[in-house]
Each structure stands twice: as C-alpha cells, then as structure tokens.
Design a protein around this nucleic acid. Structure first.
Length: 571
RNA sequence: CGGGGCGUGGCGCAGCCCGGUAGCGCGCUUGCUUCGGGAGCAAGAGGUCGCUGGUUCAAAUCCAGUCGCCCCGACCA
C-alpha cells in the first residue's frame, strides 16, 4: 500500500479524553476513531490488525473442530424471556421495537440463539458433541464505557458454545477450549495468565478468565509470584490467619453515642477492628440475608452470591430500618432477626467480639459465636488483601490490575433446560444438552498487544498482529535515485509475498520516521542518499531499534529475520 | 446512579470572573527555499463558540434548561 493514498490519519497530539495508553496510541496511530461513547470505527490499519487477530482465533477454533457460524445480532426478545435473561441483563441490553410493535434486542451474547438452533436440529446422541463458534458484534449498554476499546457498548467477540451429552463431555470440551485459548493468546504474543473466576450473569459452574496485567485493566487479580496461583479478587482466597479473639465474657451492652463505623466504634471502645463483627444485610433472590465478616475484612459480593443462590445487593438503610427496626451502624447478628445468617470462616468459634446492639447508639461486647450467634453456614466471604499468604504456597500474594481477554464457562443445562434443547440417548431417554460457553474480546487483544509492546515513540507490533510486515521509507523521494530504489524494493518485497507499506508522501524525513515508529511496523526499510552512496539499504528493527545495512539483494532476508524474531512462539 | 471536569476551525488550547472586532500553536492549501528524527519564509482557506430559551442596545462571556464527552466512585453498618 502507498501511504500517499492510504488512509492513516496519525496525530501528533493526543485528544484529551484518551487516558489509557492503548487508547492514546490507537488514536494517534490512526487505527480507530470514536463515534460515540463506547462506539468506535476501525480505520484501515486498525482493521488489518483486528483481522489478523480474528484469523488466529479462527484457525485455533477450527483446530479443535469448531464450526464457524454467523448469528443474528438482532434478536426477538422472546428467546430472552424464555431463559429469564431479559430481566437479568436489564438496562444493559439494547432494546428496540419493530414496526409491528414486537420487542427485539441487540444480542449481548448468544446462548439463546444457539439453543434455539440446537433444540430444533439436535435430536440424537449421535449429533453430539458440537463446538459452534462465531466472530460477531455484541451489544451491551455499559453503564460506563471506558479505556477506548477496553469496555465498549459495541464490540467484537469470538464466542463459542460446546454441546455435549454429559458432564464428562463438557469437561473435555472445556479443556479443549482452555488449551486452544492458551495457543491463541501465545500466538498473539500476550503474556496472559489464567485465573479462577465467578461466572456472573452467565450462570453455571466452573469458569476461568484469561487475563493480562495492565494498569488500564478493570479487574483486580490476586497473584502469587512464587507459585502460579492467580485468582480474580472476587473469588480469591488466602492462607488467612484465624481471628484473634478477645477475652471471653458475658454479652454486655455499652453506650456508643453516634459511633457507627467500625473505625469509630473501634477507637471509642479501644477494641481492635479485627475484634468487631460487621453485620451486613443483603437482598438475595430469596429475600434478605445477614452476612458477617470481621471488622477489618471486606465482604466479597461474588462469594456471597455463590451461596445465596443469585445476585445480591446491599440493602439500603431504610430497608434495614423497616425490616429489622434497627439503624445501620448498630446492627448485630445476635437476637432473632429471622433471617438466614452467613458468617465468614474467620468468625467460627470466635469469642469476645464487639458488634451492634440492635439498638441505636449502643453496641455490645463479649459476643461469642456458637453461644450468641449460630450462623446457618460458615463460608469464605472475605476479600483477600495484599501480602496475605498464598493459599497454595503461603508466600505473600500481590494485587494487580488486569485486562480480561477471554473467559471460559461450564454452563451445564441452565439454558438447554429453559429452552428445551434436548437429545435422546441410546435407550431413547431424553436429556438436556450439556453446554459450555467461551468468549474472547477481539479488540482487547489489540489493546493488550499495544500496551505491552509500546515504547516512548509509539506502538511496537509483533509479527503476528502487525498490520504490515515492512514499511519502505524513501527519506527523500524528490531524489530520483532514492525514489527508484524505494519503488524497486517495494515491488520486489511485495512480489515476495510480504505485506509492504511504502511512505511515498512528500514529507520530510523526520515526519516519516516519527510516523513509522508510531505505527509500529516491525521492519523499516530506510532508503536515502546517504545509504545509496554506500550501496546499502538500511533496515531498522522497530523492537530492538537495531539498524542493519545490507545490499538490496539481502533486504528480504534481513526483513524475514526481523519478522521471525518478532513472531511470538508457542511454549 | 452519585461526585468532579470539559464542550471555542481537523487536533491541542487561550478568551469567559469584568458582556462590545473570535485568538494562538499544530495541521491544511499555494509558492519559494530546505531535506536523517514532527523545517523556514510568504500568502491563504477554515469557526452556527454543543444545543434551546432568557436577560441586555449588545452574549463565546451572565442566567436557566438540555444534550454530548472524559475521569473518579457505586453504598462494607
């Protein structure tokens, strides 16, 4: 392609709204432009990279027998009503009405469409297993799009679905995806890691996320650098020390005027925060529940969700007052509230604790688990903090920000049961199809690659995702000899099968070199009077900055060496 | 949803308090010179000051509303 006629609107200055590094560079390098919050247009070089990422994904999916579909983004709302997810997604789903007044939505994911196909066409155990995938637009009305391409309202996702006859089939399909995702991200050159995760709105069982560390990320992860333990903060555990109990004693009410928070009560009563109990009221699908954690711990809503049987939200102060007749800040778990009680593991057998007295301006001391409070269940409810012991090896863990690149789920039969997607086994008995669901964010691959390869001059693409293999740069194309050699190189390299860009613009050398570094193509072929006089062609490796001076006949070989050096390898 | 910030040529910004000719840098066009890390000189083009309404002789500027965008937060009793 000729830069004189190819549309790459680079920017010297960065639009103010871009704060994430990948966002800034993708705008400056002319890869994309924003149309509206969370909605971006891909420009030619951005789209070339996106296509390369999608092609890697496609090859890896086909390698495990995945079959590519192209499913509708516009869905009748009916299938979403069948599974109850119209309600679950709520405002996050774009909805519209057709001219006949029928409700539709723009699909945020495609389990329902897959099931609607499967229930009509998959009849027999002989039809299973299947792996169906697509690379398609997804629509989610995110409350807060951000980070450029990192959280969008319209984005490209590779989503695949496995259909199996039983759990062991699902295990196998899940494992295939796990392996193929590893290959995919390795081929994209991303330093990913895998974490155990909560399955959120998708429902179902086991789930893992493929993450990459980045300050622009939105997920908090716990990582151990000593062993390989890694987990989303929502579900991470640690080798936590048991609660340090206070002195055992009788339950005693104390006057604590105006002291509501753990900090205030702790200071006022001169009791360490760890010997207080936080009593939280959550609204679960089955009604309000009490959740208890130590005063110096924070509750993980994801963990509570797992035991409460559905998404939970903190009750607001008025709800608590109406329901329990206690002001928040003075709530305690003792006394008969008539609600299910879930207590964090650290509280088991703890004695001599302080908590609210269930009466305004009063707390109690001497609270004893087992005597004053008998929780329905002791479970892990707390959020891990930095430097706590790794649950695998006890070394201190650290917290990091990460971008979620992909997510794999074992769905089970949630959707197939709701939508009647069943098959008949050998003995003629009907069973729901056992499903898995697996996603990869295509734009996030690009953003992650840009972030991890960037330097102070711009993007450094690896060969796998680079929009072009080489850029020929005639530094002074008013010089006929320079121009002639550049053109000759452009033609011969292109003929040799490389994707070549030539900067044939009438621009000054500095401009061309700055733009080339910004765009980040791995090999730069610099043609100039200076090099010509020496009978050499200059080839710059964008990653290392190293320049080689070779005869024009060796240019292709040198470029191929650079491309090879910049090509991620499977480990 | 809550808080904060910002909307002025393609991009980055000033002007707004204190109402009166819309300005700067980059980019763009033309010419000449220049040509290895975002050139110099000269001459140009380009703006309903987000939108609506109000106050006023007069509004980018003051007031009200509205839309859009960015950042932080989203209840831890």
């Amino acid at each position: 392609m000729r830069l004189s006629h190819y549309f790459i609107p680079t920017m010297r200055e960065t639009p103010t709204e871009a704060t994430a590094a990948s966002h800034r560079l993708m705008l400056r390098a002319g890869m994309m432009r924003m149309l509206s919050a969370g909605i971006y247009s891909f420009l030619p070089i951005g789209w070339r990279s996106a296509r390369k990422a999608m092609e890697i994904i496609r090859q890896e999916m086909e390698r495990i027998g995945g079959q590519e579909f192209y499913l509708p983004a516009l869905n009748p709302i009916d299938i979403w009503e069948e599974t109850g997810r119209s309600k679950d997604f709520g405002g996050e789903m774009f909805r519209l009405t057709d001219r006949k007044g029928h409700l539709h939505c723009l699909a945020p994911t495609h389990e329902e469409v897959i099931c609607s196909i499967a229930r009509g066409q998959v009849r027999s155990w002989r039809d299973l297993p299947q792996i169906w995938f697509q690379i398609q637009l997804k629509f989610r009305d995110e409350p807060r799009p951000r980070g450029g391409v990192l959280r969008m309202r319209q984005f490209i996702m590779k989503d695949s679905y496995s259909l199996d006859r039983d759990e062991s089939g699902l295990d196998h399909s899940y494992q295939l995806h796990r392996e193929t995702y590893e290959r995919t991200f390795q081929r994209c050159g991303l330093d990913y890691f895998i974490v155990g995760a909560s399955s959120g709105l998708m429902g179902g069982g086991q789930s893992q996320e493929f993450m990459i560390e980045s300050p622009s990320g939105e997920d908090d992860v716990v990582r151990c650098d000593h062993c390989s333990y890694a987990a989303n903060l929502e579900v991470a555990t640690s080798a936590m020390e048991p609660l340090q109990s206070g002195e055992p004693g009788p339950l005693t009410e104390v006057h604590t005027p105006g002291k509501r928070t753990v900090e205030e009560v702790s200071t006022f009563l001169n009791i360490p925060p760890g010997q207080l109990v936080k009593t939280l009221v959550y609204i679960s699908p089955t009604g309000p529940v009490l959740a208890l954690v130590a005063g110096d711990d924070e509750l993980s809503e994801a963990k509570l969700t797992a035991v409460a049987g559905g998404s939970v939200r903190l009750a607001d102060p008025n709800e608590v007052l109406e329901r329990l007749d206690v002001e928040i800040g003075y709530l305690g778990p003792h006394g008969d509230h008539g609600l299910p009680i879930y207590a964090d593991l650290r509280l088991e057998d703890a004695v001599g604790l302080a908590t609210g007295a269930n009466r305004s301006n009063h707390h109690v001391t001497g609270l004893e688990f087992g005597r004053d409070v008998v929780p329905d269940e002791y479970i892990d409810l707390r959020t891990v903090k930095p430097d706590e012991g790794c649950p695998m090896c006890s070394s201190p863990v650290r917290l990091a920000r990460a971008i979620e690149l992909g997510h794999i789920f074992k769905l089970g039969t949630k959707y197939s049961e709701a939508m009647g997607a069943t098959y008949l086994d050998e003995s003629g008995r009907e069973h729901p199809i056992v499903m898995g669901s697996y996603g990869i964010g295509v734009e996030r691959i690009l953003a992650a690659a840009v972030e991890s390869g960037k330097d102070e001059n711009g993007i450094r693409w690896n060969s796998a995702l680079s929009p072009f293999d080489a850029e020929v740069i005639p530094l002074n194309n008013t010089d006929e000899a320079v121009k002639a050699q550049a053109e000759a190189l452009y033609k011969s390299l292109t003929k040799a099968g490389l994707a070549v860009l030539i900067d044939d613009r009438e621009a000054r050398p500095g401009v061309k070199m700055k733009d080339a570094d910004l765009i980040g193509i791995p090999a730069q072929v610099i043609v100039s009077q200076r090099n010509l006089a020496k009978g050499k062609v200059e080839i710059k490796n964008r990653w290392s900055g190293k320049r080689s001076f070779v005869g024009s006949g060796e240019a292709k070989k040198t470029i191929n060496e650079i491309l090879k050096a910049c090509l991620p390898v499977l480990t």
